[in-house]
Design a protein around this nucleic acid. Structure first.
Lengths: 142, 142
DNA sequence: TATTGTTATACTCTATAACTATA
DNA sequence: TATAGTTATAGAGTATAACAATA
């Protein structure tokens, strides 16, 4: 088991990672915000869903999710179909344009990463991705 | 070299990591905010410095740094000594209380990590920390 | 009554621009 | 003139609480 000092160092590096992400976010094209990419990405991955489920997957409050969704719907990037099982809810899905916006944003970010992580062996990128996923999993399940 | 798809997956996991950090931030004790921990941590690591240098190390604008510093000084967590070489600047350093606040926050975060990453082998924690540091380095130098 | 979602309000963190004091 | 720092203002992202509609 790692000791306190190692975890403190890990925490420092995790904090610094937020700066890196913020810097990358600033380079996003058009009026597409990071939060929008997150929403579009989740819907694209998991398919049609309601706001409540989306909020759960994003791990943010439903009130916030509701605002994000309204923002995206205003731009025509997602559509809200009636939920046949519950008139209080609507089912969210990406429009063709929304899908295009998501792809553009993802390509852009992947491009920035590919550029900066130029010297990284394939194996390190995979391992890094896996460790981040494990971190998330260990925080989500508990 | 990793392909686009791998980098897109890495981006997704990095985005999710921010959620994890936000969750951890919510559990911080007292009125100590994450941004405060960042400031205290940098001064503690690098020693006495001016606002400009602090902003550079934190990678945030000096105006924002100035506000954070004022916040910390109000609480008596840092002190601002005159800079003998330049009357426009002051040298920032942690007070005894500031150091205590930092240690408490760091212990808290390290504790949360230790708790959630219970099953992680020592080696994985080290490797993870190193990969995060490398990510930051590769984004900072370019 | 309980649940789904929306809206009003407020807080944290950040950036840009205008300003003051000193170099 | 240029630089260090502060302050005013604005925007993105979030949470809490009060609310409307439906279950």
């Amino acid at each position: 088991m790692a000791d306190r000092k190692q975890f403190a160092e890990l925490a420092t590096q995790l904090r610094a990672t937020i700066s890196v992400m913020r810097g990358m976010a600033r380079t996003l094209p058009g009026d597409c915000q990071v939060a929008s990419v997150g929403v579009l990405s989740v819907i694209s991955r998991h398919g049609e869903m309601r706001i409540g489920r989306l909020a759960e997957l994003l791990d943010i409050d439903m009130s916030v999710t509701s605002r994000h969704v309204a923002h995206l719907a205003d731009r025509g990037w997602i559509e809200r179909a009636p939920d046949p099982l519950d008139k209080r809810s609507r089912l969210l899905r990406l429009t063709t344009r929304g899908d295009a916006v998501l792809r553009t944003a993802q390509d852009h970010i992947a491009g920035v990463l590919a550029d900066r992580l130029d010297g990284w062996p394939d194996e390190d990128v995979e391992r890094f991705t896996e460790l981040l996923a494990r971190l998330r999993a260990d925080f989500t399940t508990a």
